[in-house]
Nucleic acid binder design. Structure first.
Length: 722
DNA sequence: TACTATTTAATTTTT
DNA sequence: TTAAATAGTA
């Protein structure tokens, strides 16, 4: 056996992980240390050298993209297709299991997957039905609660109301939500995982089968597993199969959606004898960038501990720019990009990263003015577009009449005289008889409703029946094509004036061609339409349909995770923005922000610019800002300030203090400046964070040591300067 | 039912 | 500021 291609390109640590004996393995893989490579080569090693059959392996990732990439790379390395190898996201694999074993899982055969948007609509409707005040019980919060519980593996019956009426109501709503889903055969994302876990937990024989089958479990981005995913993994691993998990505790940035880094520690307890390998050699960034990243992350406690290093050059210093305001910041970025492009570099090799999406606007304006093509990541994806979801809802109703989410979405779209009152009557009936909207519609149309409304409802029902009947024998593409037209959606958007209607029609056509190109997984054994609908829900598609090939990349630091760019800008590095105001007072939150900063810095390969604005317009108000504390955590020897300001003694730690503010600002006369220590008669000592307004209206934001931050009117506050 | 005025709130996002 | 959701009007 020639193992050269598998081991050749690996360093010692990587090789140790790849060739390790069949024992539990935890690989702590720093940014840019070849984490995917280790997983891919481990899979190849197991198959090619250890002789594990491909179907004896299960590889789990967090995104579809990562799953596709991993499969592709394994096939390239082994030079053969590995179809029997299960690679997918937790959700994708759970879905596969549930389709195979729907009976054991207690699901209807044709269950449908709903995405977050469907789920929210369902909850809103539920609140209306139950006549719950949606200003007191905010749909988003209920959704968050339900998903949070499911992520922890908890059903309503597991929950204790703790004699708290609010919590009790939440639990009731969770219960009611479950009932609606069950009635409609609807499964949300968290439910996929939860149901898959229960499937294994409650079916010893089935679990035994999969335990015997999967001798090796490979897990990517392990630091992002939530409780239910981890529980599922543990159950599947049993004491026979060998888990090989790869992650980076310093890149855990999704705690807010259930991810628990603690699983890295838990893993070592649950699998005694776990080997730990650290990958610290970095193949991406310059020494300077790595030193900066190491220094920043070192301020976090409770780390596994890791120091990235490189054999490569130190490279250029990190450039820091203190912009006057957000437009100046954009101008600066654009100017640097101009240089970069003029030097013959690719636009696509440059990325502008920011903390929150709202920041992209000003940057985009700058890029548009400079005629620099760019692409913004994030936003609505293909299968999330309203018109696409409309069409899918029609398709879903043809498959499953009881899908209330889809029913409500399209019952009056295009408008067909079924107004709010009619729908309300149906809801009342459905509620009273605990049946689906479809059945309610049938009943209500024949007795309760007036002639006009009744005939509209009947017409709608006939339309759906007709669509189902007419498309019964068609293949997938023609089915979608027919439904898109016969539903009246195309005609509806034709009436839309302007470009919007056109794009919508184009998108619907795109849906038809997506159906044409869709290749169902032969292993899945599902009707093509069912498979297509599941695919649409599980894989929302690309963010931007057709982007220019070579354009500057704009995205949040979250979406930049896993990517790398020769030139990176980190913009809006200001306290309050980054670290974000909502996390700033919570030590855990602050540490997560710092990890995010670490992720941001380590995206850069050659050059890194860090910028902040001394004044930023936020929510329509001008605010003065303090440079991000993370800037001060970068060792000064790695930083070069662009356009250093005059008469500033400590530019990094006290930037802005020495520069005159806008001339009309009354604060300077009052002797108040950012960072100024002040004493208040009642609140005690604090530091000025921000100020705004003039004259009698001038206000300051002070962070008091004991009582937190407060806005005070300067003329009343009687602050003593210290 | 469609358009317009008013109110409200304002991270991060994959599945 | 602005985008989205809601309420009010033609």
């Amino acid at each position: 056996m020639d193992v050269t291609p598998i081991l050749d390109t690996l360093n010692d640590a990587q090789r140790e992980a790849v060739t390790a004996p069949a024992e539990p393995m935890l690989v702590i893989a720093g940014a840019g240390s070849g984490k995917t490579r280790v997983l891919v080569h481990r899979a190849a090693w197991l198959i090619d050298v250890e002789g594990v059959p491909p179907q004896g392996l299960l590889a789990v990732t967090f995104t579809n993209k990562a799953a596709a990439e991993m499969r592709g790379r394994i096939e390239t390395l082994l030079k053969l297709p590995v179809n029997p190898l299960w690679i997918g996201t937790f959700h994708g694999l759970a879905h596969r299991l549930l389709r195979r074993h729907w009976r054991e899982a207690g699901l209807p055969q044709g269950f449908q997957i709903i995405d977050a948007d469907d789920q929210l609509r369902l909850i809103k409707r539920l609140l209306k039905n139950l006549e719950v005040d949606d200003s007191r019980w905010v749909p988003r919060e209920i959704q968050y609660f339900i998903n949070g519980q499911k992520d922890e593996g908890l059903r309503p019956e597991h929950l204790d109301d703790e004699r708290d009426p609010d919590r009790r109501q939440m639990i009731e709503l969770y219960k009611a939500y479950e009932a609606v889903c069950e009635r409609g055969g609807l499964v949300d994302f968290a439910e996929l995982l939860l149901a898959a876990h229960e499937l294994f937990r409650d079916n010893a024989e089935l679990l035994g089968h999969y335990r015997r089958r999967f001798q090796h479990l490979l897990v990517d981005e392990f630091q992002d597993t939530n409780a239910i995913q981890y529980a599922w993994l543990r159950l599947l691993a049993g004491d026979q199969s060998v888990p090989f998990v790869v992650g980076d505790d310093d890149q855990s940035i999704y705690r807010w959606r259930g991810a628990r880094v603690e699983h890295i520690h838990q893993f070592q307890r649950d699998f005694p004898g776990t080997r730990v390998v650290k990958l610290e050699q970095n193949y991406r960034s310059t020494g300077t960038i790595l030193n900066a990243a190491n220094a920043v992350i070192a301020n976090n406690g409770s780390r596994m501990g890791k120091n990235l290093w490189t054999e490569g050059v130190d490279g250029e210093p990190i450039r820091l720019y203190a912009a006057y305001n957000e437009r100046d910041e954009a101008d600066f970025v654009v100017a640097r990009l101009r240089d970069w492009i003029d030097q013959g570099n690719l636009r696509a090799d440059a990325a502008i990263l920011y903390r929150s999406n709202a920041q992209s606007r000003v940057l985009e304006e700058g890029l548009i003015n400079a005629r620099i093509p760019y692409r913004v990541y994030g936003g609505l994806r293909f299968f999330e577009r309203a018109e696409i979801k409309d069409a899918l809802a029609y398709l879903r109703l043809t498959v499953n009449r009881d899908d209330d989410a889809s029913f409500e979405r399209i019952v009056n779209r295009p408008t067909r005289g079924i107004g709010a009152r009619t729908v309300e009557a149906m809801r009342a009936y459905a509620r009273a008889n605990a049946c689906s909207m479809w059945r309610a519609a049938g009943a209500v149309a024949s007795d309760t409703l007036s002639g006009r409304a009744a005939s509209s409802v009947s017409a709608f029902m006939q339309l759906i029946e007709k669509l189902a009947h007419e498309t019964e024998t068609l293949d997938l593409e023609d089915k979608v094509d027919h439904v898109v037209h016969a539903s009246g959606l195309i005609d509806l958007f034709k009436k839309d004036k302007g470009e919007r209607g056109e794009t919508r029609i184009e998108n619907l056509m795109e849906l038809v061609s997506a159906a044409k190109g869709f290749e169902p997984d032969p292993a899945e054994d599902m009707a093509p339409l069912d498979a297509f609908l599941a695919h649409a829900a599980l894989e929302a598609g690309e963010g931007q349909a057709n982007a220019w090939d070579d354009c500057v990349q704009l995205m949040t630091m979250h979406s930049a995770k896993g990517l790398e760019f020769p030139l990176v800008f980190l913009c809006g590095m200001e306290d309050g923005l980054f670290p974000h105001q909502r996390s700033i007072n919570d030590p855990n939150g602050l540490e997560e922000e710092r990890r995010l900063c670490y992720v941001g810095i380590t995206r850069a390969m050659q050059a890194l610019y860090v910028t902040y604005a001394e004044q930023r317009r936020l929510h329509g108000m001008d605010n003065f800002s303090v440079p991000s504390r993370f800037i001060a955590e970068i060792p000064e020897e790695h930083v070069e300030e662009v356009r250093p300001k005059v008469s500033v003694s400590r530019p990094l730690r006290n930037a802005g203090a020495g520069r005159p503010r806008s001339p009309s600002n009354g604060m300077a006369e009052a002797g108040v400046r950012l960072g100024q220590r002040v004493r208040h008669g009642k609140f005690g000592d604090g530091v000025v964070l921000n100020y705004e307004g003039q004259g009698a209206h001038a206000r300051v934001e002070v962070n008091f040591e004991n009582v937190g931050t407060k806005w005070l009117v300067l003329s009343y506050a009687n602050l003593d300067l210290m």
